[in-house]
Amino acid sequence: MNDVLAVLEQRERTLRKVSNEVVTGARRLADALGQGGGGARVDALVIAAGTVAGADQLGGFGADKVITLTNPAFGHYAPEGHARVIADRAKAGGYGAVVFAASATGRDLAPRVAARLGVPLAQDITDIAVEGGAVTVVHPVYAGRALLKLKLTARPAIVSLRPNVFTAVQRPRAGSAETAAVDAPVGRVVVTGIKHAAAGALDVAEAAIVISGGRGLREPANFKLLEQLAAAFGGRAAVGASRAVVDAGWRAHADQVGQTGKTVSPTLYIAVGISGAIQHLAGMRTSKVIVAINKDRDAPIFKVADYGVVGDLFEVVPKLTEEIKKLHG
């Protein structure tokens, strides 16, 4: 009852990066659950149309076994089929916990699985532990202005992990692999396709570095400055936006960081020309390091920023881009 099932994500038969974080989180939880004696295993579950690139590397992050369950219907995310396969597996394996990523897919899937199993779910958690044999989690509430600590008294405990918080750690295990074909129900909900964002564009929720712009950019074309800075970081950075500029139609809603947009926890968050309304802080205050560039010394963003630069972003950002390029050149 202490083993942990880690539910991974793949797209086009390639494992998504957040999957490494899920295995890392699951390993941490299994180690804590197994401490009472006997240890605990992590089984990593991949659901796909066929074998998935990267799945064989998961032992490196602490998976004891990688289970790939395949069906031609699982080329895209199949909400009902995935939920059934995971719930069945969770029941059959007698797991103590099931761990998801709090990604677009995980947030959709975890409640379905929890309802099927008749147990509660703690969604979008930032910390996990075991106290007195029960799983406890921390979940930010009220726009990140308070932390709720919860105890899950039912088994399996179902949780989804906020991306970028459970930093993937190498914990090599001699991971075995199992691949099996499974039945899929005829879904009443079918993903017929994915409209892709610009090729290579990283999602703000998952990027290690996020550079966000606000009204201080003055006009949409000036986001070019932030894109150049992001490019200087060599594919690790994404460009985000404040609510004001998304509402003004300058940037897509997918890029919005804040209460009505995305919650991000990158290693480095650079706020450019953003004053720092509560609404925005809700989405980025769990970033590891925050840099603010703003001409207004009194802007609230400087209160949460680890490092601030007061000045004209049109001078500071190009200079920063130049210096980052040197560093990486």
């Binding site: 105890k151 840099v291 680890d306």
Partner: peptide
Amino acid sequence: SLEVLALSPPPQRKDGRVVGEGSAAVPELL
């Protein structure tokens, strides 16, 4: 089966500091 143990304020972020003004502050920021 979900018990609230505590509601608490988030950890205060360490007081930030202004590194400097304008592009002259960039090398120190880096």
